[in-house]
Amino acid sequence: MAAVSEIAAARRIVIKVGSALLVGEDGAADSAWLAAFAQDVAALRARGQQVLIVSSGAGALGRRRLGLRRRGLSLAEKQAAAAAGQSALMRAWEAALEPHGAICAQVLLTREDTETRRRWLNARATLEALLALGVTPVINENDTVVTEEIRVGDNDRLSARVAQLVSAEVLVLLSDIDGLYTADPRADPTATHIPRVSQLTPQIEAMAGGANAQADVGTGGMATKIEAARIASEAGCATIITLGSRSRPLAALEAGALSTVIEPATTPKAAYKAWIAGALAPAGTLVVDAGAAGALKRGKSLLAAGLTAVEGVFEKGACVRIVDLDGQEIGRGLVRYEAGHAQRICGLKSGAVEPALGYTAGPVIHADDLALAPPSVAA
């Protein structure tokens, strides 16, 4: 089954573009490739699909600007190159996308932004706001401040974390090879292309870590792409690995070009709800009245009006238990107010929240951030 079906059905697509595609042999941005790729982005946007780009290239462009051509740069020199190159990288993306009426925005993330709950929520809120405004986020790791110990490591992994962050349906990893093979096709003419992977088994991982280990340039390789695909799969996102060096690689995909599709293990919504329900330790408890309990079970958000008590000390973005007046757990969710503020708005109608706090963050827990308890627990 061709990758075209995954792309056509996706509401939200994350595309990873590596340095080797974006930066030419002269060390400058490859404007011809970018212009062609921007046509692909414009075509997706014209169909109403949202696109996020995870882009490498700042370090390479910065080296050229600063004249740092030698090998073995110190960490401080690498960070200086990334700082100098990031503006050049964004100019290149703006020049490519603006002729199509697409506004792009720079988003720099660190590992903590994808792993620390409060920062994760803030990063997600920013990206959601940009997408709602019709903006195309161009995302990179914040190499100017991170050290080796706290880096995501490479943009394959970062792109998978971004896909998880925004509940994308498809992650496209543009590579210098058109997918996964049973062996390195450049060394073994009998190597067989694998068009679709339904499950990431040890055998698949062995192919990526062995024969395909040198099938990529830059900091990653096929092994890191498979690792990224595992992260994406567990988040409900399909991964497509395909050749990126051709002009308009996404159009080529939809025309039937070779690729490897790695299927998701679940759906984005189910994965997110499972994460809330099982991966996060509750930091407190919210007690709700009978009306709110019924509304939550029907898929509604928790409003301050239905809140009767707040137990525990927690920050905005914490995972909390929601129980009814009898103490039965209804579900767990990510709360939008810290404990003291949640206590102050208990029982208030929505219009009274801002006068009471000086701000409003909407419902106490949005339905999207709520995982209902299974019937055996909620009964």
Rank of each mutant, 00 (worst) to 15 (best):
V197N: 01
A42M: 14
A281R: 06
Y359G: 10
V162N: 01
T144K: 12
R119W: 03
E263F: 08
H193I: 02
L171E: 11
I262T: 07
D184I: 00
D113W: 03
V17D: 03
R117Y: 05
A8F: 03
I231W: 10
T219I: 00
G236S: 12
A229C: 09
V135I: 08
G153P: 10
G72F: 07
L372F: 06
L296Q: 11
V166R: 04
E149W: 05
E311H: 13
L127W: 02
V51M: 01
G48K: 13
L302N: 11
I226C: 03
L286E: 11
K16W: 00
T116M: 03
L296T: 12
V162K: 01
L97D: 02
A367I: 07
L200V: 07
A46C: 13
A290H: 10
V288K: 01
R336W: 10
F37W: 12
Q49V: 15
L348F: 15
L307P: 14
V23L: 02
G62W: 02
A187C: 00
T308R: 15
D176N: 15
H193Q: 11
T126P: 00
A339W: 11
K269W: 04
L165I: 12
S245G: 11
R151T: 12
Y272A: 09
T308D: 12
Q343K: 05
W93F: 04
V4M: 09
K297Y: 13
C237R: 00
A229D: 10
G327P: 10
L22V: 11
L89H: 04
I13E: 01
A191G: 10
S301W: 14
A42T: 15
I13P: 01
L73F: 01
E112R: 05
T285V: 13
I365S: 07
